[in-house]
Design a binder for these strands. Structure first.
Lengths: 221, 221
DNA sequence: ACAAAAGTGTTCGATCTACACCCATGC
DNA sequence: GCATGGGTGTAGATCGAACACTTTTGT
């Protein structure tokens, strides 16, 4: 049970890591996690372990990534880890223990076991889902301006994102809802930004068919 | 370790199931699988167990689905299953043991544990990937006509698929390669069908960005 | 007035669906 | 010839990227 908890910090995503206090891999940074209990499923387990590092109320989305089971991924005894992706909105700044810190994904410290690779898988999943789901709700504050959302998408994706097109794409899909309110301009002036909200806070696929759509007169089987 | 092995039979996908000979759930149909060995990873394990039911050489693609770990998904002791999707081309008809049979997914018999639900997850994964990857290579014979491929896609997706558009979409993406040969017409006549091949036999995402493409002058991070 | 930030209008290209039409074969 | 199955041409719709231009604020 391991969790890749990501949060956009500045222009880059960061991942939550804690410093191992003992062997193996003493002093290296590791993903939060722990063993599966007898009366819980894997998602309940990862949430239980995560609660030791971060306020669970701040984790806006959790989903399963993949199982890592290479017999040589760590020293004996062999461990099978089910990895999860967790997302924390950029405005939340949960209290975390002393041994725990956020690390930019473009400058990871030496990590324990295969946790660097698992982090990469989590980041790839986030990037993919930004394109065809409403997963942005888990990165953004409850209310936000388009330029702020643009910053979050650009940081997560690692490339430039146009505010113009982002707004249009997400609006057309019914993902964004205007609140009717505006933000105060900064000290340098500028037009006040309209504020938006995500229409849903649970994951939904918004662009299901890249191609091979069913015919207009449909009817699923 | 469980495998949802699918194969297109006629106009519907079928899944490989075997009949349990003892309690619990004696007589019900179950997915092939078994326990994880100490010196193998999960994929090697599922392949090892699968080899008891079907010739592995006939399984054209294997990928991880998800972990099923509800403490009440079966009687005690609690079991955690990592489910896989396996695909067998439609022209292969591997020998299978007496206790094993293909079952149409639209008319599943009573299944053991949560195996019906797991089958549904596997089918959904196949359907999704048909749209944005070249995964069709694992359903089709090595060489095939467009109308044959159309039949396979329509069966897997559960809705009508146009041969015209299928050919154009897959050709544009560089997924299909013409062999230059043609098939003999049937007894009723008709123009001989051109035969095609998949350009690759490993999974590749062919339509990566539904939206939010990186800018033209790109550069990944 | 001017700079800064946000938002809108519009063009262009890519891509996919739909449908009419043309081609090759057997009887 | 004509029915049958296969293949191509093309128009229409949708969608998203790019970019110019307008709107609203602060100094």
């Amino acid at each position: 049970m391991l969790a890749v908890v990501l949060r956009i910090t500045g222009t880059v995503p960061s991942v939550l890591l804690w410093r191992r206090a003992r062997e193996p891999h003493e002093g290296r940074w590791a993903l939060p996690g722990g063993r599966l209990g007898a009366t819980e499923d894997v998602e309940a387990s990862v949430r239980r372990h995560l609660a030791e590092k971060v306020d669970l109320a701040e984790v806006a989305h959790v989903e399963q990534l993949s199982v890592f089971s290479d017999p040589h991924r760590g020293p004996a005894p062999r461990r099978v880890a089910t990895a999860f992706l967790g997302l924390v909105p950029s405005d939340a700044d949960p209290a975390i223990p002393d041994d725990t810190a956020w690390h930019r994904v473009d400058a990871l410290p030496p990590t324990a076991f295969d946790h660097g690779e698992i982090t990469r898988v989590g980041l790839d999943r986030l990037r993919a889902k930004l394109s065809y789901t409403n997963i942005g709700f888990a990165l953004a504050p409850d209310v936000f301006s388009i330029s702020e959302l643009r910053r979050l998408y650009a940081a997560a994706l690692g490339h430039h994102v146009s505010a113009t097109n982002l707004q249009r794409v997400l609006t057309r899909r019914g993902v964004l809802v205007p609140t009717g309110t505006t933000a105060a301009p900064g000290p340098a002036g500028g037009r006040p930004a309209a504020l938006f909200r995500f229409s849903e806070h649970t994951l939904r696929v918004t662009d299901p068919f890249a191609a091979l759509r069913p015919p207009s007169g449909a009817g699923a089987v």
